[in-house]
Amino acid sequence: MDIFGVPIQAFLGQIMLGLVNGAFYAVLSLGLAIIFGLLRIVNFAHGAFFMAGAFVAYMAGSYFGVGYWPALFVAPVVVGIAGALFERLFLRRIYGLDPIYGLLLTFGLVLVLEGGFRVAFGSSGQPFPTPPELRGVWNLGFMILPVYRAFVIGVAIVVCLATWFVIEKTRIGAHLRAATERPELTQSFGINVPMLLTITYGAGVGLAAFAGVLAAPIQHVYPSMGSDLVIIVFAIVVIGGLGSIFGSAVTGLGLGVVEGLTKVYYSQASATVVFLVMALVLLLRPAGLFGREEN
């Protein structure tokens, strides 16, 4: 069976790859949206923390023999704590200023982190083994599905839903939403808003690090793995709008699929299609698909 002249196996295979990419876009733009919502900071370093997560997992594995499963827990915690420290020591100082300074400050951090890992490990990729439990493929009859990729998509969806649950249905999520809307008022109710900011930033970049560990077996571990990704995620955020957490996750997954489809029909454009969609959205719906008017 063909779909517009493409065999269905190839078609579904590319959709699958698109979904995997989309899963990373979704988790990263989710974190960006949460951080932006509360801190009013566009975290350029999100990709760098993604990369740091992958490297922490790699180092834990090669120096201390920590396996994949513990690393999936350890790396986000380590990176999250580092992120919280960064927030306490640096980001905190520029909250009153134009949000653009946040972008620039975190850009500086990107250079420091990327340069640091490049000094330590070089520019080329370090291989990262797929955990033995997730090797191999499932033959679904109409397509071949690598187990690890299915695992990534599943985990990403669970993570997005869990984040949504935490924000919408728990006490700390309620505090977070309150602080997003009215920080001074929230503080006057006795909630420690500065602490909430630190936790949010730490959790957001921890999420990025988690995605980095997930990505490590798929694409090797190298210093610039995060920054190319984060620029695509920025475009996705422009398309979806930073205002809606749900919107950013859905847009991320959706654009991953669009990218996969482009690879099937016109592979040269697959690297640029997200940016083209962004330009189109700006022309037709300047506020973004799920956007409330910002500023």
Partner: peptide, 8 residues
């Protein structure tokens, strides 16, 4: 768009 979005 403006500000931070424009930069992105």
């Amino acid at each position: 768009r403006q500000g931070i979005y424009l930069a992105m």
